[in-house]
Design a protein around this nucleic acid. Structure first.
Lengths: 204, 204
DNA sequence: TCCATTAGTTAGTAAGCAGTCACTCATTAC
DNA sequence: GTAATGAGTGACTGCTTACTAACTAATGGA
């Protein structure tokens, strides 16, 4: 029995949840499995989180703050809209690569049918990311960097879909390709399509 | 007690599985829930499927044949590559709209971690769809309908991602927009990007 | 009409689930 | 040093899970 402070144990449990949610699947993740992994008895988990739902809530909060911070860091790296777009998408891919449970949690019925608060949290997270992409696309269009017929909102949806679709292929295919690298390649292809071609460049 | 033939009951159970997989989530779908929905006792289900895994296998086969048939029907409607592309994508969106459990099943750990046979089946289904899209993109490029710098394989991945990403947004957002309509709009935007612009048209 | 087949039942099992309760003992503040 | 705090345990509960065994009765062919 290794005794830890509540704060440390809480953090440990949340990190373990994220790891096990990937290994076992969010819906199969039991309090017993968490307890075993952190070296506690099963009721010991309930000392730190009153219900299992509270546990998931804490996990969601952790994901939220981690992602938000990562986006901010990415945006600080450049001022050029298209660069920032690339940085944002790559950051997101890296997040998924290092926390593969995230897409699984997004799709689990833990939030989909039972935990409305969780679902709303993830939806708002996704919409915040979409808003960031949209803002960069709008800026890029105003700067004449991309075609005028690219609707910033649709473009943002296309880019988010790229990330999510790729994450699905990655998970289904046993993760045998490098997510970030493959994603960067596809993103480049998509951005080439977005960019102005010679004939469409605004007159100087 | 309404007695049916084994074939009819099997089909009924599979259809019910598809419905309940959406309502409850694939991982929470119990044999009891299926039994209640079809009006059998819980052990009655095991008269038709020896194990739960066999049940999922049957569901996967049903999805496979339904989708394959739908794709063939779509392809028969036109000979023009870009038309066929639109028809394929719209068909896929319609399939998801009428069987919303499909993406959920695709992501559930029922197949992801436990049922390798199921996962392989879905992966091959996805790759077959990707191959169909790629073929049309190749044809379109050879016919000079789309930009030469659109790699047919990357283009196919972008289109599949569009479908999957949109399906996620649809599910997460309580399905409050029409999937096929919104998808058709985005597809149109993407195809506009694929198409040749004036300056790139091949010389006559 | 009778009999073989078979869809369906009732009753039960072992295992696993989240959560409770009364308790123990390590840490820390005084 | 001692008392209060609080992290952790063991034993438990009620519920749900997939699955089995033995039996019943509806159906269809001879």
């Amino acid at each position: 029995m290794v005794r830890k402070t509540a704060a440390a144990r809480k953090a440990e449990i949340i990190a373990t949840m994220l790891r096990l949610a990937d290994e076992l699947g969010p819906d199969r993740l039991t309090t017993q499995a968490v307890a075993d992994a952190v070296g506690l008895t099963q009721p010991g988990v309930f000392r730190h989180f009153t219900t299992k739902q509270a546990l998931w809530q804490a996990v969601a909060e952790a994901i939220d703050t981690t992602m938000s911070r990562a986006w901010q860091t990415a945006l600080a790296e450049s001022a050029a809209p298209l660069d920032r777009l690339v940085l944002l998408v790559r950051t997101q891919l890296r997040q998924i690569e290092s926390h593969p449970a995230i897409p699984a949690i997004l799709h689990s019925r833990e939030l989909q049918s039972e935990n409305a608060a969780l679902r709303d949290r993830f939806r708002s997270l996704m919409m915040r990311f979409q808003a960031l992409l949209r803002a960069e696309l709008t800026a890029a269009r105003e700067a004449g960097l991309i075609r005028g017929d690219v609707d910033p909102n649709d473009g943002a949806v296309l880019l988010i879909s790229l990330v999510q679709g790729l994450a699905i292929r990655w998970a289904l295919g046993n993760r045998l390709f490098a997510l970030e690298a493959e994603g960067a390649r596809l993103l480049d292809a998509q951005l080439t399509l977005f960019r102005l071609t010679a004939s469409q460049e605004p007159a100087p």
